[in-house]
Amino acid sequence: MIPGSFDYHRPKSVADAVALLVKLGEDARPLAGGHSLIPMMKTRLATPEHLVDLRAIGDLKGIREEGGDIVIGAMTTQHTLIGSDLLAAKLPIIRETSLLIADPQIRYMGTIGGNAANGDPGNDMPALMQCLGASYELTGPNGVRRVAAREFYQAAYFTALETGEILTAIRIPVPPVGHGYAYEKLKRKIGDYATAAAAVVLTMSGGKCTSASIGLTNVADTPLWAEEAANALVGTALDKAALDKAVALAEAITSPAADGRGPAEYRTKMAGVMLRRAAERAKSRAKN
């Protein structure tokens, strides 16, 4: 398996990268960690004539707190996310999710931006970002714009990114202290994409759920933000009846493909099972 030929560019700044992408147009692809793109190039499913490697752009790396938000540079690797004390304290679900992505080697190279921007429905970060209400900073020839993760994904590999634009940072509102969270992922083995996965973040007070958000991975051609399912949890004690209702609402919005992970009906049901388990674990973690 050998990729086709291409020219390689390694800009040092976002402005240079954008300028290159604008100049080279549709024939160019930005390269982040490369573990989605390079295998596609090796099977010649992708044949870009130019690769614009974003790895040398220092501005795209790092995790910082800004106002009530956590801002993560797009080229921050999953390995870095896992090791971040700041995230461990404020957004532990990112670490939990990152540990379930691919395998150790790939997590050194794989980036949060690449995972989020690629538009692969199998990736884990998109549903998590939707669950967390994150927004993406897209930098293009006309400057920076922000698009909510919940509005970014259009179809498999189709996103709101315009030609010449790069996802440069992800801004995540910090959930309240004491929130409950869980990412439940069913997969065949380490290194596999999810058969189905669910991200849940919620808050509890006086035994009742006061807020909830749910993201679902790999059960449609885009990540799914299960708004109605989450609403069905709010105001309940997250008892069986409430979970049954949320699961039914979540299952209703899935439309998974059949593949080696199982037929569509199985993956829909697994989205429900993962949601139920994530909600139960989130509840157990929430301060009441």
Partner: peptide
């Protein structure tokens, strides 16, 4: 970093 050199 441990890196898979067939995908780099």
């Amino acid at each position: 970093m441990s890196v898979k050199s067939c995908t780099t």
